[in-house]
């Protein structure tokens, strides 16, 4: 009887059963399952961010791998009480900026536009290969600040505030940059003889 009472008392001091740890918390601890889950969630968007930044499948694939490796290495800098997505894109964007700086040193000949033959069948059905090639080329010709803003806007489902945070600028500045980026894309597209026909 006494033993039972003691057990009851000690139970009072036992920590309540913890709810399943959040993805953010598990990631910060270096849990590889959490890492895999993050990769699954952002699989397409990080690759497409790379495509928009570099207009190259090879570079986008390298970028994809390096982004996830970088965020895993930098997990100790992440605060699990904050949303993961803006932090992830901020790390990705910093990596992308470094790559763009280096890419500028590469000759234009090596800048790869998609070859129509490489394009998947479904994509060919959705959009003309020639048009697609032109869009990639125009995107690549844009100023990096417009390219990264457009890339974030069209690759992720982040809010404008999150995009502004990732860019490290104010919300209003991010909106202005996005509008100018779109305008800049249109002007460059027309300058290269592109027509805004329906996709």
């Amino acid at each position: 009887m006494i033993l039972e009472d003691i057990m009851k008392i000690t139970d009072l001091f036992k920590p309540a059963p913890a709810a399943a740890d959040s993805l953010e918390l598990r990631f910060a601890r270096g849990d590889m399952d959490a890492m895999e889950e993050i990769m699954r969630i952002h699989h397409n968007s990080i690759y497409q961010l790379g495509l928009r930044l570099f207009a190259s499948r090879d570079l986008a694939a390298d970028f994809y791998q390096d982004v996830f490796i970088r965020i895993y290495e930098k997990r100790h800098h992440y605060r699990p009480d904050r949303p993961l997505k803006p932090w992830l894109y901020q790390v990705a964007l910093n990596l992308g900026r470094d790559r763009l700086r280096r890419k500028r040193e590469i000759s234009l000949e090596e800048a790869s536009c998609p070859e129509p033959a490489e394009m998947p069948r479904m994509e060919e059905e959705a959009i003309a290969a020639e048009l697609k090639q032109k869009v990639w080329g125009v995107m690549e010709s844009l100023s990096p600040i417009y390219r990264e803003t457009l890339a974030l806007r069209f690759s992720s489902d982040m809010s404008m505030q999150e995009i502004a945070d990732a860019l490290g600028i104010s919300l209003s500045a991010a909106k202005v940059r996005l509008c100018r980026g779109l305008k800049s894309f249109e002007d460059a597209f027309r300058a290269q003889g592109g027509e805004m026909y329906v996709l």
Partner: peptide
């Protein structure tokens, strides 16, 4: 223009890319 920017990059990465990255990790 917005549609072009959206659609022209709608490609999926190779399925093996995630596994390759995980192996590297």
């Amino acid at each position: 223009a917005a549609l072009l920017l959206d659609r022209a990059f709608q490609e999926k990465p190779a399925a093996s890319l995630r596994q390759k990255t995980l192996r590297r990790l």
